[in-house]
Simulated scan of single mutants.
Amino acid sequence: MSTTPADDTFRRYTAALERDFRTSHHVSDYAAALGYSPRTLTRATLAATGTTAKQYLDARVLLEAKRLLVHTDATAADISRALGFAEPTDFAKFFRKRERRTPLEFRAAARGQT
């Protein structure tokens, strides 16, 4: 099975994202580190997943946030810091925009406490 350049680009992006998603939430940072343009990362990610590079990155951050909310007793502020948000309010806005509820509302529902 042969791979296309887009496959290799996406694989490199995924590896970099897994390594650095806790410290960088900007596609441009990954693009610069990998020697690509943000548009190239987006094209490769669209081809592989049907989502943009930013949507893919945000989904990874959200997945980790959910994991930490469900499986730890860390506060939302602690999780915010662990995921590289400058302020807990930035994390709360990020989470609420994508999940339609606050991190603590998500935790309560996931733990059957609603």
Results as ranks from 00 to 15, higher is better:
T23P: 01
S24I: 07
S24G: 08
H25T: 05
H26I: 13
H26Y: 11
H26L: 14
H26Q: 15
S28Q: 12
D29H: 14
D29S: 10
D29T: 08
D29K: 12
Y30N: 10
Y30G: 11
A31E: 00
A32W: 00
A33K: 10
L34A: 09
G35D: 00
S37L: 04
R39I: 14
L41K: 13
A44R: 04
A44I: 03
T45K: 13
T45V: 10
A47V: 13
A47R: 13
G50E: 00
T51Y: 06
T51C: 08
T52E: 06
T52V: 06
A53T: 14
K54H: 08
Q55V: 02
Q55I: 04
Q55C: 02
Y56E: 11
Y56W: 13
L57W: 04
A59F: 05
A59P: 00
A59V: 03
R60Y: 11
R60Q: 09
R60V: 08
V61W: 02
L62A: 02
L62S: 03
L62I: 03
L63M: 09
L63I: 04
E64F: 03
E64Y: 03
E64Q: 02
E64L: 01
E64V: 02
E64G: 00
A65Q: 01
A65S: 04
K66N: 09
K66F: 04
R67C: 06
R67K: 11
L68F: 05
V70Y: 09
V70H: 07
D73R: 15
D73K: 14
A74C: 13
A74Q: 12
A74T: 09
A74M: 12
T75H: 07
A77S: 04
A77F: 00
